[in-house]
């Protein structure tokens, strides 16, 4: 009985010690200089520049913080086309009306567009690895979160991906806002409407 108590006490003390040690480790991880950019509001509060992400994926293009800031201007988008089935006014994106069915192109996925969606998926994965879950919300909210508006001020939206419309939504190369289907904390589907600018059709480009 006495021995059992001793063992139990020993396990408890060990658990507390390990917890403290892990806590210290996580604190030092969070504070480690993963990039040259300072945490917002800490070392360089005046700059307000977001921190670049800590990532082990060499393919993930992460620009320097100043490049991210410079890329905030939306790139050119296609001219609007007549909408067959308009979204509610609050949901309309000026650059993303769908093409009429007869004008929709064949489902050929251009490689750059596919690469862009996949790069976006990788960056969301990096975000998830850092924060323990996917960013949540609608397109504009996810963009804000990915673009430094998170607890660590870390940026996950490099300039080559950062194409925004006037509502702060991330759009594909045809001007349609990406659709982020949030399935769980670890699963998210990123969907481009493709050349026909209509979601859930055969030319959609999807990555997760």
């Amino acid at each position: 009985m006495k021995r059992g108590r001793l063992i139990f006490s020993g396990v408890l003390v060990l658990a507390v010690a390990v917890s403290l040690w892990r806590f210290r480790e996580s604190q030092s991880d969070a504070g480690s200089p993963v990039t040259a950019g300072p945490e917002v509001g800490e070392a360089d509060p005046g700059s307000g520049k977001p921190e670049a992400p800590a990532t082990s994926d060499a393919e993930t293009a992460v620009p320097p913080a100043d490049a991210v800031a410079a890329s905030a201007v939306p790139r050119s988008v296609p001219a609007p086309l007549p909408a067959a089935n308009p979204a509610s006014p609050q949901r309309q994106s000026p650059a993303a009306p769908p093409l009429p069915v007869e004008k929709r192109p064949a489902a050929v996925v251009p490689e750059p567009a596919q690469a862009e969606v996949e790069a976006l998926a990788r960056n969301i994965r990096d975000y998830r690895d850092r924060f323990g879950g996917n960013p949540v919300g609608n397109n504009a909210e996810i963009v804000r979160e990915m673009d430094g508006g998170n607890a660590k001020g870390a940026a996950y939206l490099p300039s080559d991906l950062k194409r925004l419309n006037g509502q702060g939504e991330l759009i594909d190369e045809w001007g349609t806002p990406y659709f982020f289907h949030q399935e769980s904390a670890k699963e998210i589907e990123i969907r481009s409407a493709g050349a026909d600018r209509v979601l859930w059709t055969s030319d959609d480009i999807v990555a997760r």
């Binding site: 949540v136 919300g137 949030q182 399935e183 769980s184």
Partner: peptide
């Protein structure tokens, strides 16, 4: 947000 929002709000499984 962290105090008031349910974790992973808007995701199906959560």
């Amino acid at each position: 947000p962290t105090f008031y929002r349910p974790p992973q709000l808007f995701s199906h499984s959560d």
